[in-house]
Simulated assay, not measured.
Amino acid sequence: MQRWFLMVVLLSLFVVQTGKFAQAQQLSGDVLEEFRAEMQDFFKFTSSILITFTSQTGVTQGNFVFSSDIDEDYSLKVFKAPLRYYLVPAENRLRPFVTLSYGHARTSVTYRSADYYPEDLDVRDRDRSRTNSFGVKTGASWEYRPGFTLEPFLGVAYSHIEYLYEFNTRFMREIIELFPELDRDAYNTTVDLYSVSSGLRHSLDYPLGPGLFGFDLQYVYQYSRPWRSKSSFVDFSAHSSFLGTTLDYELPTGLNLLDRELSIKPFVSRTDLFGDFNKGMHLHHFYEFGMNLILDVGPFRNLFSRISLGGSYITGENFQGWKFGLTFI
């Protein structure tokens, strides 16, 4: 996800020049095509990650860190606010629904410059992004047997990604002075995308001992394509999917809050990543371990019947994070 490879390409261009540069230059055709191909992959993989995290409610949210052996760790912060409305009361076994969602993500990493200028040794460039996604999803929750629920759904989303780069090192400032078009095309630019997704979720709630054992399996496929960008390098389509598996156990505490029953629900989940989502994160799967406090508030205007407050720890290959929040179920 880092743009370190761009600095390597630009370094090779910079070193072959001699003396000071009095005016801007143009990239040669071969170099430009190679650079364009690299940028296509960069935008494709990063947008796939950011859109999936912000527009898909089945993917976790929170604060995450991607560890790196050669540079500073890469940070990702994700916030999502979904709102589901059921078209029929809870007594019905087949309940069509509409879900509106908003997601926001921020990323940040700093780079050491090439060791070309001594004054750059203690200076770092800063690479950031901001993503906002708005989505709508429609589907139906069908309890085909007591405790067994099947949920197909289809969704669309619009996402706006803003890439921001601070040229703090002399090396990168001189590169941009030499090739000013790269500032808009590769570093400080925006991408607007639309996404279409489809998925299927199956859940099981089975009485076991004093509590309720739960098993949840969800698969989602997502297709994304940009429709507008400041960059002339943006022209791609992204195909991503994930498989989420969750085991939980809900146990009544025997306590009441505001005359409502209070339960605890520890859980463990695994998310497997496929397609461009996998390639962009260099991550095949990650695990989540957490605990929720559940308050049964009864049906509230076909929106929710329970409130969940909890937190979890997320870990994967060179990837870890945490979340804490409130969820309406």
Results as ranks from 00 to 15, higher is better:
127 D>E: 15
128 R>V: 01
129 S>D: 04
131 T>A: 09
131 T>Q: 07
131 T>F: 00
133 S>H: 06
135 G>Y: 00
135 G>E: 02
135 G>A: 10
136 V>Q: 05
136 V>F: 06
136 V>K: 07
137 K>G: 06
138 T>H: 09
138 T>N: 10
139 G>I: 11
139 G>Y: 11
140 A>S: 11
141 S>R: 12
141 S>F: 00
141 S>H: 03
142 W>P: 04
142 W>Y: 14
143 E>R: 09
144 Y>I: 12
144 Y>G: 10
145 R>K: 13
146 P>T: 14
146 P>G: 08
147 G>S: 10
148 F>V: 14
148 F>E: 15
148 F>Q: 15
149 T>L: 06
149 T>H: 02
149 T>A: 09
149 T>G: 00
150 L>R: 07
152 P>M: 13
153 F>K: 11
153 F>L: 05
153 F>I: 02
154 L>I: 14
155 G>W: 00
156 V>S: 05
159 S>L: 03
160 H>N: 14
160 H>F: 05
160 H>P: 01
161 I>Q: 15
163 Y>K: 10
164 L>R: 14
164 L>G: 05
167 F>T: 04
168 N>L: 05
169 T>E: 12
169 T>S: 13
169 T>Q: 05
169 T>N: 09
172 M>P: 01
173 R>A: 00
174 E>A: 01
175 I>C: 05
175 I>K: 03
175 I>E: 03
175 I>T: 08
177 E>C: 00
178 L>C: 12
179 F>H: 03
179 F>T: 02
180 P>H: 06
182 L>W: 05
182 L>K: 07
183 D>Y: 02
184 R>Y: 02
184 R>E: 13
185 D>F: 01
185 D>T: 02
188 N>Y: 06
191 V>L: 11
194 Y>I: 12
195 S>Y: 02
197 S>A: 15
197 S>C: 07
199 G>Y: 06
201 R>F: 08
201 R>W: 05
204 L>F: 13
206 Y>K: 14
207 P>D: 10
208 L>K: 07
210 P>A: 13
210 P>E: 12
211 G>T: 12
212 L>W: 11
212 L>C: 10
212 L>A: 06
213 F>P: 08
214 G>K: 10
215 F>H: 09
215 F>V: 12
215 F>A: 13
217 L>V: 15
219 Y>M: 03
219 Y>G: 02
219 Y>A: 08
220 V>F: 00
220 V>E: 11
221 Y>S: 04
221 Y>V: 00
222 Q>C: 01
222 Q>A: 03
222 Q>L: 04
222 Q>V: 02
